[in-house]
Design a protein around this nucleic acid. Structure first.
Lengths: 208, 208
DNA sequence: CGCAATAGTTACCGACCGGTCACACCTATG
DNA sequence: CATAGGTGTGACCGGTCGGTAACTATTGCG
């Protein structure tokens, strides 16, 4: 609005190689939509506001995404992909040591529990999008299944008894901690997520 | 719409004492709003649709509730009160036997996990209502705190070690199971909610 | 250069949103 | 019978929603 013809505050031209050449409109829209969906909820923000925040316009948004639902799915896929990278970092941090990776998982999840107080984007979307048959649901379920499967494998490698039940339990603890932080606040049950996980892992380890 | 002047399909008059005299408009609105919020989400249904489904009109709705936000709070309080009654049934079912009540809690929660696939209304509202300062948040937090406190007391009476940590763990497991059922489907981690709870309770009981 | 693809702008559409108004209606009670 | 309070009706308000049309400006590339 205030800048009219110049693309940024800079000199309009000759930003050929120094600056990282700001992302293409499509990418700006996706990442901006991620943030705004997170802050205001999927139903709580309009495409117009998303386009403006992404420093573009609604027409461009609709040329890349046929509908708001398409954009929703794309943002969820985007978030999924970022989350998938986490598992490789875990393997790098504790190579070949599954039990250490499991404890690393707990620690990392506890970290994002405090760093990202808005909960899991995918889970929140599942809560918010009630219309069954919405294309986002398959994205959400695929993501959740994949995340859980990685945890199942990890628990199996850690050599504990009933590894699948442990993975189920940890999955529920994490999911519960994230939504519990929204509903009950910081001092609710989620405050003891780490202790709960560690106690659970220990009990499974001893059980065998 | 189709019935115009007659209040119901009946003979317009003389329902003085036989029929249970259908609830007053205010009560119809609250319970109808509960259902519709659950089905479509709080943001997904309009006051007009709620009034119509409650067989009344928007004006009457606004005469009882000053705003949609007021109605939201009232429905959440309504749900809270119904949920509070559950604890008394639990005491009646297993009088004086805290451990039996704890297992009864698990069983009952597992039951509503399958009976009510839409998750916890209060938790869902917390996810959906991002605007901080929304009056619903205190209703939600009060409810969650009260529910959790009852569980803490119960775990304490059951005589397990670290009863508060057990209550935190069970709270997170339940919350996680309910949202996990939405995000991951019936076959996700929530399928083993009972086993996870029982294993957890057992490990806490043995730990001491 | 010249062309084509992409991006930006403005205006517009019909639908629906939460909320209000004035007025007619019904029914219970005095 | 009369009055009053709760209820029903329909129109209306400004605003926003998701989505589209037509046109212009910019850009990258042969």
């Amino acid at each position: 609005m205030t800048q009219k013809n110049s693309k940024r505050g800079s000199e309009v031209k000759s930003e050929t190689d120094c600056q990282p050449t700001r992302p293409a409109p499509r990418d700006r829209i996706v990442s901006t939509a991620c943030d705004l969906f997170r802050q205001h909820g999927i139903r709580g923000i309009g495409v117009d506001a998303i386009a403006e925040a992404a420093e573009t316009n609604k027409m461009t948004l609709y040329r890349h995404f046929g509908s708001k639902d398409d954009l929703i799915c794309e943002t969820l896929r985007f978030t999924s992909q970022k989350a998938a990278a986490f598992w490789e970092e875990l393997e790098i941090a504790h190579p070949g040591n599954a039990m250490a990776q499991l404890h690393g998982w707990v620690k990392a999840r506890a970290q994002c529990l405090t760093d990202e107080p808005y909960g899991c984007d995918l889970a929140n979307a599942a809560v918010e999008l009630k219309e069954q048959g919405h294309p986002a649901h398959v994205v959400i379920e695929n993501f959740k299944t994949a995340q859980h499967q990685r945890l199942v494998v990890l628990c199996g490698q850690a050599g504990v008894g009933q590894s699948e039940l442990l993975a189920d339990t940890l999955s529920m603890l994490l999911e519960g901690a994230r939504v519990s932080r929204l509903a009950s606040g910081t001092d609710g049950p989620s405050a003891h997520f780490v202790r709960a996980c560690e106690a659970t892992i220990a009990s499974f380890g001893n059980a065998r």
